[in-house]
Design a protein around this nucleic acid. Sequence first.
DNA 1: ATCCAGGATTTTGCATACCAAAGGCTGTAT
DNA 2: ATACAGCCTTTGGTATGCAAAATCCTGGAT
Lengths: 246, 246
Amino acid sequence: MTQPVSPLPDRGPTGRRTAKGALSGTAARRVERPAPLRQVVYEALAELIVNRTLEPGQHLVEADLAEYLGVSRQPVREALQRLQTEGWVDLRPAQGAFVHLPTDEEADHLLGVRSVLEAYSARLAAGQAGPEDVKRLWELHHEGIEALADDDIEAVVAANSSLHAFVTELSGNSVLAEMIALVDRRVRWYYTPIARPRGHDAWHEHAQLIEAIAAKDPVVAEEIMTRHTERTRQAFHDRPREEPQS
Amino acid sequence: MTQPVSPLPDRGPTGRRTAKGALSGTAARRVERPAPLRQVVYEALAELIVNRTLEPGQHLVEADLAEYLGVSRQPVREALQRLQTEGWVDLRPAQGAFVHLPTDEEADHLLGVRSVLEAYSARLAAGQAGPEDVKRLWELHHEGIEALADDDIEAVVAANSSLHAFVTELSGNSVLAEMIALVDRRVRWYYTPIARPRGHDAWHEHAQLIEAIAAKDPVVAEEIMTRHTERTRQAFHDRPREEPQS
DNA sequence: ATCCAGGATTTTGCATACCAAAGGCTGTAT
DNA sequence: ATACAGCCTTTGGTATGCAAAATCCTGGAT
């Protein structure tokens, strides 16, 4: 999804950004925002964490990250700050940042919260969705089914995210959307490497959900979503455990 | 609640912190953490925002805040960073921080999310609470009733917070606790200045809730909490509107 | 009077440099 | 082995500088 770290913005020899190069080629839309560096760093680090380049528990040294990313310590610190409030790293005073080490208990808590939030979003979505929206939902569902047939795990995961994200969007509750986005990302971080996507049964549940939304039935939509997410949670508990180390 | 800004830590003439003074008088526990400056700043600013010293929409100039608080720009920036992710300020790129301006719609969204989160916590609490916990709940309830009798609004609000916070704690879900804390604080910011606490009926609902928890009945506890928070939400909609300006 | 151009000012966003204090590490004396 | 002293690394903070962007201001031209 996110850009890997390598293609950083063009820089002069001092490391300061230069616009010289960009000015030629592209007379493109001026509307584009230059993306604050701290946010680029934030996204880069988040990506490095989810893809396990930075392992849980690892000590993140500001200076190293700064050098690696080709920026100064300041944007790195600000990014770490934000990563903490969102649960990706722990900032131990006078010791710095450590990649968060999720416990099984915490993963379960997260899955529980996700369950009630997603259920709520399904309920709201059922009250809001128009025919256009339902059509779009079926499209996304179709994408998932196809990816499943192709055995393309990555695409299945992507389609799953898209579908859930769209339901969330349909709910029309922006605060809810933000929270789900946060929780979901962490859930994926904990969960994805352990259990592979649940496959056909999950997409059957998705279909039921869409039908309930199309029928504008909030109660059933909520029920189905609850069952769906609780089943994922169960899958987490039944996961093939790695041997307990040490 | 939080310390006002004035009593900042002792500083030398350069603005650097000195421990000289503190060393004498107190040979106190060394276990105490010195509280990172950025966090002190964070709390100071949050307090200034909730108590309306910094008005919604106001432009926060880093340098001014830094001077006012007697610190450098860096900790201020980090605090603002965190205030943004938690919804207190909006950080407009290249323009700086503005105190978040809540819309009615957003307040409603927030109240909705709070409702489902609190309901979940009530459900979990009913499954977890022991006799000791129930006793504590009744104590808190008693405090609320007394404050109500004394017409001490501030104490009523405090008791209300304590009670809800304890229920959340009983849920045993730390992730949930964090999220509720976040949402609650913002709800109070939006809501408190508008509607005065709901009074006796609210505390009657609290009593019902505690009974359901004591009876270890998750379903009823959840129902009651849902009714309770949805009623607060309704009170928000029925609030005496200030005249629409402009 | 009004509008607008363009210069002056303010503010952000980042870089750099520096320093005190805390924590971790290591080697040596016991 | 253990304890301790001293060194090294890292954080957390200060101070300063500067380019780019946003904003404010001002002086015509209409």
